[in-house]
Amino acid sequence: MKIIQTERITDCVCSLALRAGMTMTPDCLAALQTARRKEAGAAAFALDTILENEAIARREHMPLCQDTGMAVVLIELGNEVYLEGTPLKEAVDEGVRRAYRRGNFRKSICDPLTRQNTGDNTPAHLHIDIVAGDTVRVTFLPKGFGSENMSRLYMLTPAEGREGIIQSVVETVRLAGSRPCPPVHIGVGIGGSFDSCALLAKRALLRGVGCNHPRADVAEIERECLARVNALGIGPQGFGGNVTALGVSCEIAPTHIAGLPVAVNIQCHCIRCEREVIA
């Protein structure tokens, strides 16, 4: 058994949140630079502005986007770890609270009915997996809602199969149109249940741009989705163009013999995701 103070998790969440809000992942940046070479006119202007914005945020330590997001925190907790101190959820929320204050990040979390802002961007959306080992792996994903709002969940029938999955992805992107800040990243969950499928889709967004699924049939679905989405011609910011999506990542899980859940989680052009292991 290894003892880890939850104060270290607070510190870790705080530093990851600060970094994530100001940093585009390197693979995302590379994908945008490649996309720029394929566009002209207003679409090229949009990508130039996005690339300049990335440089400003990095240089001046400013949030890339004013939507510094809902704090999504994924923790892989080793089963040989004993957490001591403030309860884990409170420790995570405290890390979010500190980061959003120190970083001059926007506080975007509110009551769903009264719309009263919680004032400190808490609570974080916390997912915990118990895994083998004696470390705590923390992933921080600030999720903006321009793109989250455009995400969809389908409960397909098994007969709809592979083509149904691809059509669901294409339809989601078509309906989203110019609204989620394209060129988008698309996380797709296939299988599981109503709730777990959506989480699969979100986890798919964390894999890294241009990194296909190890299973050949899944990777083939990713490639076909990307080609058909880009054929829509929505383009950067919806101004029309060749690059509507930068990448499609699918994650799969066993499902029920009667169903085929498909979740499509849309991410704007900018993936902000930071990870750290507490040993």
């Binding site: 945020a57 986007c65 910011q237």
Partner: peptide, 13 residues
């Protein structure tokens, strides 16, 4: 007018 979504730091300046 459309401003460029995601370019928060750029527009902030």
């Amino acid at each position: 007018f459309a401003a460029i979504g995601g370019a928060g730091a750029f527009y902030g300046n």
